[in-house]
């Protein structure tokens, strides 16, 4: 499956975000830092979660939120820009299969998500240092989460015809899913109703599993979180590949 067409498209997608790294890497790292600064200042002396200082608890959630949001942003913004300006035609004219197209966009999204996540982790180290109890889980949830959001970004980038439609997708779906996923709190602190609601949010399992990798403790077993996250990824991949195979909005 892997041909030079795939590797060039993947390289192009990575180079695209790298060339504007102030906007695609530095800006989200700064945003995460501001969250950390404000929440840790307000809550550090008042809140402990799972017996951990609040700042330490917060860092993995912020890292994962940045991974997910940037993985989504990479594929979706690249695709809508290419569609609106028309230059996606150069990819569509090439002998690149729908699987290669999918793989290139999603893998580039994973790279962007991981680069931003590592940036957030690096810069937050000045505030507090979380442990790395199970690094395998950290990597697994980061990659699965980024791939899932990259895949969702491909769908959004193809579905949206205008930038405001993509903004709506981002504001009304991605933001609520990531903010209401336990980034800033443990769901054990929520009322029972909202605990139940959170359990229907797949992003909650990604954050929870990712956090388990750091502390060795979380709201749920990492295996349950892994099963839900991997299951969602498989479903999302199947939907995205099916749309690409049909040429949805790309090949009329």
């Amino acid at each position: 499956m892997v041909s030079s067409g795939f590797s060039t498209l993947f390289y192009k997608e990575v180079l695209r975000f790298w060339k504007v790294s102030a906007q695609t890497i530095a800006a989200p790292v700064l945003t995460a830092m501001l969250y950390l600064l404000i929440f840790s200042q307000v809550l550090e002396d008042h809140v402990k979660v799972h017996g951990l200082p609040y700042t330490v608890f917060l860092i993995p959630g912020l890292v994962m939120m940045s991974v997910l949001q940037n993985a989504f942003a990479n594929a979706s913004s690249s695709l809508i820009q290419s569609r609106v300006t028309g230059n996606l035609v150069f990819v569509l004219l090439a002998p690149i299969s729908h699987r290669e197209f999918f793989a290139a966009y999603v893998l580039a999204s994973v790279v962007r998500g991981l680069v931003v996540g590592m940036g957030v982790l690096l810069f937050t180290a000045g505030f507090a240092s979380p442990s790395f109890a199970e690094p395998g889980w950290i990597l697994a949830f980061a990659v699965i989460g980024a791939a899932l959001m990259g895949s969702l970004g491909v769908i959004a980038g193809i579905w949206a015809d205008k930038f405001d439609q993509l903004a709506a997708f981002q504001n009304f779906l991605i933001m609520p899913l990531t903010f209401l996923s336990g980034v800033f709190y443990s769901i054990a602190s929520l009322p029972p109703f909202w605990q139940q609601v959170s359990r229907w949010n797949p992003v909650f399992y990604m954050i929870d599993g990712f956090r388990f990798g750091f502390f060795g403790l979380a709201d749920h077993s990492p295996w349950l979180s892994f099963t839900v996250a991997a299951g969602c990824l498989i479903i999302m991949m199947a939907v995205t590949l099916s749309l690409l195979k049909r040429g949805y909005k790309l090949r009329t």
Binding site: T8, K12, L15, R16, S82, N87, F90, V91, P95
Partner: peptide
């Protein structure tokens, strides 16, 4: 194919654009 619309990728130079396009075709 030379498309009718004047489309381009604003992120790249002329040479990078041509190298990318060659790469899409397996070159």
């Amino acid at each position: 194919v030379v498309p009718q619309e004047l489309v381009f990728d604003p992120f790249f130079t002329v040479r990078e654009t041509l190298r990318m396009q060659a790469g899409y075709f397996g070159i």
